[in-house]
Design a protein around this nucleic acid. Sequence first.
RNA 1: GCCGCUAUCGUCUAAUGGUUAGGACGCCAGGUUUUCAUCCUGGUAAUCCGGGUUCGAUUCCCGGUAGCGGUACCA
Length: 477
Amino acid sequence: MTKVRFAPSPTGELHLGSARTALYNYLFAKKAGGKFIFRLEDTDQNRYVAGSAKRLLDDLRWLGIEWDEGPDKKGTYGPYIQSQRLDIYKKHVDNLVAAGHAYYCFCSKDRLEKLRQDQQTAKQPTMYDRQCLNLTADQVKQFFADKTPYVVRLHVPVGTTEFTDLVHGKITIQNNTIDDQVLLKSDGFPTYHLANVVDDYLMQITHVIRGEEWLPSTAKHVLLYKAFGWSAPIWCHLPNVLNIKKSKLSKRRDGDTVWLSTYRRQGYLPPALVNYLALLGWHPTDEQEIFTLNDLTREFDLSRVQKAGAVFDITKLNWFNEQYIRKMSVADLDKELQVFYPKHSQDTTGFTSSIQSRLTKLSDVVEATDFFFKKQLKFEASLLIPKKGSPAKTLLALERALNIFTNVSNWTTESLRSAAESLVSAGEFSRGELLWPIRVALTGLANSPDVFDVMTALGKESSLGRLNQAINLLKKS
RNA sequence: GCCGCUAUCGUCUAAUGGUUAGGACGCCAGGUUUUCAUCCUGGUAAUCCGGGUUCGAUUCCCGGUAGCGGUACCA
């Protein structure tokens, strides 16, 4: 059975790149009818951020991606948190040492640091010099007796290591360029390399789908599988998600823009994010662009994943979000918008309906509907006058409008429109001469939604009041 | 420095040993609209460079260049 995993570290929030990796794993699993596992890789105690794990799970779920096994779910291969599996790693690393595939290293960090610096100044590859590889049993015994801190290193054999990657094809690495990687740290925690291989094997992961940054160290992992005598999973390395400068999207360089939660908070919709992320590095056979999560689980195919990194482009995300906002029913949109509307006791359905085609993200509603909530609009009287209009005629238009709208009993967009039309067809005013001042009177803005939608949303009393205020403003000027 | 990966419009991408190199976003123009937004129509713009193979290369091969990633007791 196909089984994949998403294995983030609890060092922050859900990263956009991670979200895409999770999505691809999920889609691949669902399409194959397999399982998708969430595993927490908290083996670095220094970088651990409290509360991070919960946010990771929460953000992923918000996207609509659900896992079959994970920290908060029962599963037969748990625990799914690596810090709870230390004894397992210890046992496996002991086996490796016993079989001669790994060895104890008692070198101090200072020595390692100096070694690295010397190699750098000599323009040599920076690698461990294997000083501890040939320690005698007695020497090792003595170090242990002295309680010298130690790590366990992989003993990289002579030769070349080859593996096949689903998106990159065959990769060949000379073993003499591979460092004797630390597998077990001096604090008893495993490094990523050990924990990852052991867990993927024990959890019966069939496909490792992860970021491209892991491609160089995959050779180490292949070596580890060999050392354990296990068969390796199928490898698949996804191209990086890049920033506008084409470097890997990172918290350090790009700040909050890397977190999924940033977009969530601004009112980007999960299906828009999913749709955008899916197309960032993957493309279907045809030219379809709009996909639901469900569509994607049918269409997705690792063989069509791009090799080169993809720049995260907010303007395209914006377009997707606009598409999804416009597709929503007014009722659904209004419900989503409640978090963003200012405090009020009004029915906002009319507001929502009038600005649906003007929103890029849900938070835009604040600015877009600001004029609805204001008790007193502030604008210059001159704004009321159309481009080629005169104050006198504008005043007349507003008075006529006030008069005719006062007599509209059925306050709907249609009847308001026909009331205005009757004024226009009387021939006294052009549409612009009539509607422009009304728009400004109602909104205080040059750009606004449809005049009649605004009036409907505002209600009769408020609409007439605003017309009245505009008339007074014009008279005073 | 060393190792690895990658290279089609500004961005995401499609395609092919022979095409006017296609689509989307953006941008520009026109139409609709009282304005703006929406919507519709049209336009703009790309095969990194140099060799080779071939009748023919953007596509296959080699080299270069550039970008990215790795080079930790981080993941």
